[in-house]
Design a protein around this nucleic acid. Sequence first.
DNA 1: CTGTTAGCGCGTTCAA
DNA 2: TTGAACGCGCTAACAG
Lengths: 352, 352
Amino acid sequence: MRPTVHDIAERAGVSLATVDRVLNGRPNVRGVTRARVEAAIADLGYVRDVAAANLAKGRVYSFAFILPAGDNPFMRTLEAEVRGIERQVSADRIRVGISVVPPFDAGRLADAIDAAVAAGVSGIAAVAVEDDAVVAAIDRAKAAGIAFVTLVSDIAQSARDHFAGVDNMAAGRTAGSLMARFLGDRPGPVAVLAGSMRLRDHRERLEGFAARLGAGRVLLPVLEGQDDPARAQALVGDILKRTPDLAGLYSLGAGNAGLVRALAEAGGEALVVIAHELTPETRAGLSSGLIAAVLNQDAGHEVRSAVRVLKARADGVPLHAAQERIRIDIFVNDNLPPEAGQSGADVSSVPE
Amino acid sequence: MRPTVHDIAERAGVSLATVDRVLNGRPNVRGVTRARVEAAIADLGYVRDVAAANLAKGRVYSFAFILPAGDNPFMRTLEAEVRGIERQVSADRIRVGISVVPPFDAGRLADAIDAAVAAGVSGIAAVAVEDDAVVAAIDRAKAAGIAFVTLVSDIAQSARDHFAGVDNMAAGRTAGSLMARFLGDRPGPVAVLAGSMRLRDHRERLEGFAARLGAGRVLLPVLEGQDDPARAQALVGDILKRTPDLAGLYSLGAGNAGLVRALAEAGGEALVVIAHELTPETRAGLSSGLIAAVLNQDAGHEVRSAVRVLKARADGVPLHAAQERIRIDIFVNDNLPPEAGQSGADVSSVPE
DNA sequence: CTGTTAGCGCGTTCAA
DNA sequence: TTGAACGCGCTAACAG
């Protein structure tokens, strides 16, 4: 049986309360007493039973997720995953709230962070926007002792505890080497559709992509679609028309609904298209053969990872870094995961 | 606040003990009383606090993992993951034991299952071997009320609760379509290296692969290497010599250390090689460019999934099917996850 | 058949 | 500075 506080108290010759004070770093314990208790803890290899502790405390974790509004399908999937996780973790006394802020609006994001801090949450996960105001807000949250995880998009120079997202440079490299493999010796230039070169994620993906594409391949100037389906459709339609020998197209941002429409219209067959994020649109593109491969970050995994990390931080407990690393998934038409039901509502009931 | 057993007792006008009896389906409760309690439970929307229940019960879950012995690197990774998960879940009063049995030995596997049942575990996870004796043993375990999960390799016709592994037919299709894409118009036949056509997993992968390879492509007779590195090396070396125009090679089983050695020796450059399972050997193959892509099933995910399912079954709680689906990962040289430290020992400690 | 009571491992009043 | 005692939500002896 695992040692308990009783065992420690007995071994150290003190009472339960004193053990508790030492365990939780509370004051009013003499140095010698503290040392005796700590020795006992070390000797017995005591580890606190977090479940029992929470039961006693009546503690409820409250985490805030801050996501960008808008019709970016990936962000909506992320939101659905956050909503879906609620029931899953409510048994562990964890409440998760969502606030949605205008996309790319650093001021509003910073305000939302401050609001969550004021509301007394014990952890925050947010899709970051690179901005000094946001960095400052994150640092304020950390200073208030609140766990902070950046989600999907990171700000490394902030005080955040963890980043739950992918290495976008590596994602770009992956797209580049896949593109090179798929094209083989086939001639023709390659186009890139991005949201905006002002976004760090998009810059990184492009850089990685270019690095792996191969020296002999012409890379056309980047098209910026602002992650907007209509603009993306126009841009792609245009480039297809103007570049009959186009060999490949890499869509590294959102707005892929427009991309797929433009591809379907043009009826281009041999064009190799690689896109990001598995959404209904890109899934359809894979199925119809218009898209060769989709790179994906698993939104569900990211959300679950964020919750685990926030909880671990709130408990002051170490975490398994290996499990928290978000992979870059490659999907083709044959390894697509089954279409998820309604936002995580896919529950198999148990017989008997 | 969530309703507790006290609230139910009060509302139904009974004592805690009676509520507990109803909650846990124990006997010695009058029909009318039971109905009253159940009504109160429904009215209040009560959900049991599993953590508190386990604390009270002093319950320790004990799960048995049964794995094949031998030097199959994937199986050793699986074993390492099982050992690695112990500490991670010991906080949740879960103990996991491992027993290793001779590979492909149905009798010994069945014995191990029976032994675990006799030892009184509450759940079993095993890499299944297709055999009536094994089916019978699984069914005995289920009859004894023990949760059962097949791992990596399934027996669908048994009474197992769940399969934690991948769809091998889909994995084969994925390999086939990737091979077709990678080869493009390049001429030349394709070879397949399998362990044994007597293994259902390997048959399924081959079938999927052939279905997606394309009609115009010649598929050479299957090489059976018995998952043995030395035999694999000999077979691959031989086919490379005898088939100078060989365009592609699909290794759908184990023994890839031999495969990589043979490839390195031959110095074949343009040959497109696709293999299964990310091991040190295949990882080296990807890095050196000898292997184009590796299909993988995440052993850590499989083990964690198995534990979650076993625990859910033992608790009689529903589970989120979507999270328990094991994906078919595609790895190329650019999206490789960082090399894991020693068997899950990759723990980042928490500051402050 | 039903109710009382004493814990599970821990945190938190209160006194001392 | 320390300790005794109670309670978190639930289960499991016991009585009745």
